[in-house]
């Protein structure tokens, strides 16, 4: 049997997983450390969580980040789904290759370039047409939508590529308008991918430091900007507490989306299978 893992491979896998998870586990442990020093264990304490919640600057930055992230994720899901449909379902159109490159390019362009170029655009637009008058949440939102759309497109396109076209055509044959066929036949099947894409876009926006630093303005300091300026000087127990809470949130979201995907995947499979048969 070629399946079945050799002991060496098993050891290597475990070592890499330890490498992946140990740093995060250490952050969780030290967030409950009474001492300010990383090296000294001074007993269990939730002191830093209290200080975190009393930190006005961090809490208001968190509020800014949550608002920007939810708006950016929602817009990115709309744009990304449209782009995914254009790429997978519309058949060939002129410039399809270039369109595909344009949509996915933000995935790989370094953030410093994306951030700088968007800032220069906002400044130029401000000079030329007076909008946006100043940088703030609006400009961060535009910037985050632009790079998150690429990620949503990839996630939704993967799901759409598996979707059986015959189902959609059957709905059209039965008299549905393209919009209605999309809303009632395609949308329910790709809904888990939209949910996963939204969560991905949300976490990307919540996490972004570089692009936000370029495009944000006074009064729109996001959470990563505050975290960055505080950890630049060294390890901070408050940030450990914040990291633990963020990781708990991500873990919950990951479990939720995994569960959604699994549940919907089996339901989706049941719905799609008659379509496969009608194709014959």
């Amino acid at each position: 049997m070629t399946r079945g893992l050799s002991p060496a491979l098993r050891v290597a896998m475990i070592a890499v997983f330890v490498f992946l998870y140990a740093p995060m586990l250490l952050l969780v442990i030290y967030s409950f450390n009474e001492s300010r020093l990383v090296t000294v264990w001074a007993g269990f304490s939730t002191r830093w969580y209290g200080e975190l919640f009393r930190d006005r600057q961090m809490m208001s930055a968190l509020w800014v980040s949550l608002r920007v992230a939810s708006m950016a994720a929602t817009t990115a899901v709309v744009l990304g789904t449209l782009a995914a449909i254009a790429l997978t379902r519309l058949g060939p159109f002129r410039g399809r290759g270039a369109f595909g490159m344009l949509v996915t390019a933000p995935l790989l362009i370094p953030e410093v370039i994306t951030g700088l170029s968007l800032l220069l655009l906002f400044v130029a637009m401000g000079q030329l047409i007076g909008w946006p008058a100043e940088r703030g949440m609006l400009t961060v939102w535009i910037a985050h939508v632009t790079f998150a759309t690429a990620f949503v497109t990839v996630v939704v396109a993967a799901r759409l590529a598996q979707f059986d076209r015959a189902l959609y055509e059957a709905a059209l044959d039965l008299g549905a308008t393209p919009f209605r066929a999309f809303a009632q036949v395609v949308l329910p099947v790709i809904a888990p991918a939209l949910g996963a894409g939204w969560l991905l876009a949300f976490t990307l926006s919540l996490d972004d430091l570089v692009i936000a630093s370029f495009t944000s303005g006074p009064g729109a300091t996001t959470l990563p900007m505050v975290v960055f300026s505080s950890v630049r000087l060294g390890v901070s127990p408050k940030v450990n507490a914040l990291a633990t809470l963020l990781m708990a949130f991500v873990l919950l979201a990951a479990l939720l989306s995994w569960w959604l995907m699994r549940r919907r995947a089996s339901a989706g499979a049941a719905m799609v299978s008659p379509g496969n048969m009608s194709r014959r």
Binding site: F17, P224, G234, V250
Partner: peptide, 27 residues
């Protein structure tokens, strides 16, 4: 999923975690 989940948590936080590990008084 175990490989992907870390990349969902904050990039900034994951980089920061190594400051506490590699420092002179680190782990």
């Amino acid at each position: 999923l175990l490989v992907i989940v870390p990349s969902w948590t904050s990039f900034l936080i994951r980089v920061y975690a190594w400051m506490g590990i590699l420092g002179n008084t680190g782990v």
